[in-house]
């Protein structure tokens, strides 16, 4: 039986109010890790607080809006100790046909999703460097590899971030900091769940596994990727989609 071992304790979860992050934080607590969940709005904070009602002392909360320069600067300023792990779930949608998208919205989207996020990645990895230890997992999407119509900008931002995380692993693995990207397919959570509900049956026919993944399955995979056993997965992307992207 594989026993997961962890070299650190403190885990920063960007986009901490999404279903996957909450599920992961629960697993982390069971494994003796200390999740720090970031939220963008009061609604996100309430979701986290409700999820961890009665065990609030097991987590930490931090405000971070990756679309706000001030918020990013405040977040970095307040980071008093380096996290051992970072899991990046932030994924605001941007659905538009490439030829019809509003160009200023496109610029804003890339500026925040890629530009400002790289500032956060930079700050976290510099902190990790002081200890020469760190593991970063970027939660991307199969859309990065096989987008549907309307997902061009979303896919481009995901690919840009994948490239940044890949290079962090390339540049800093020798200093104890490694990275891996996970590309999940359809999940029974959040945006994926809503999409599946709209086109139930038809969508899942494309998945050889013939079902969507449950959040806990994905969270367990992330736990493995954070563990010492998975360090060899560095500067690369892994697909977790039940075979979706392998088929025509």
């Amino acid at each position: 039986m594989l026993t997961l071992e962890f070299s650190g304790r403190r885990a920063l979860l960007l986009g901490g109010s999404c279903t996957l992050a909450l599920e992961l934080a629960g697993l982390m607590i069971t494994a003796g890790l200390r999740p720090v969940l970031t939220y963008r709005r009061g609604q996100g904070r309430r979701l986290i607080e409700e999820y961890f009602a009665g065990r609030a002392e097991t987590i930490e909360l931090a405000h971070l809006d990756v679309a706000s320069e001030t918020s990013v600067a405040d977040f970095i300023h307040q980071m008093d100790q380096p996290p051992d792990y970072l899991v990046d779930f932030v994924h605001p949608d941007f659905e538009a046909l490439v030829a019809s998208a509003d160009s200023s919205s496109v610029r804003d989207y890339f500026n925040t999703q890629v530009g400002l996020r790289s500032t956060v990645i930079q700050a976290v990895t510099r902190q990790m460097l002081t200890r020469k230890r760190g593991r970063l997992v970027f939660i991307s999407s199969t859309a990065a590899q096989r987008p549907n119509a309307g997902q061009g900008f979303y896919a481009a931002a995901k690919q840009a971030l994948e490239a940044l995380y890949r290079n962090v692993g390339l540049e800093l693995a020798g200093r104890g900091i490694t990275t891996v990207t996970l590309r999940p397919g359809y999940i029974n959570a959040g945006r994926g769940e809503r999409y599946l509900e709209k086109g139930r049956g038809a969508v899942l026919k494309k998945v050889p596994l013939a079902r969507a993944l449950e959040p806990v399955e994905v969270a367990n995979v992330i736990m493995f990727l954070l563990s010492c056993s998975a360090t060899g997965f560095n500067a690369t992307e892994l697909t977790l989609d039940g075979g979706l992207s392998a088929s025509k």
Partner: peptide, 13 residues
């Protein structure tokens, strides 16, 4: 370049 990065981080700390 990687040494310069580490140097910057160490000076900051």
């Amino acid at each position: 370049s990687i040494d310069f990065l580490e140097l910057a981080v160490s000076l900051n700390a």
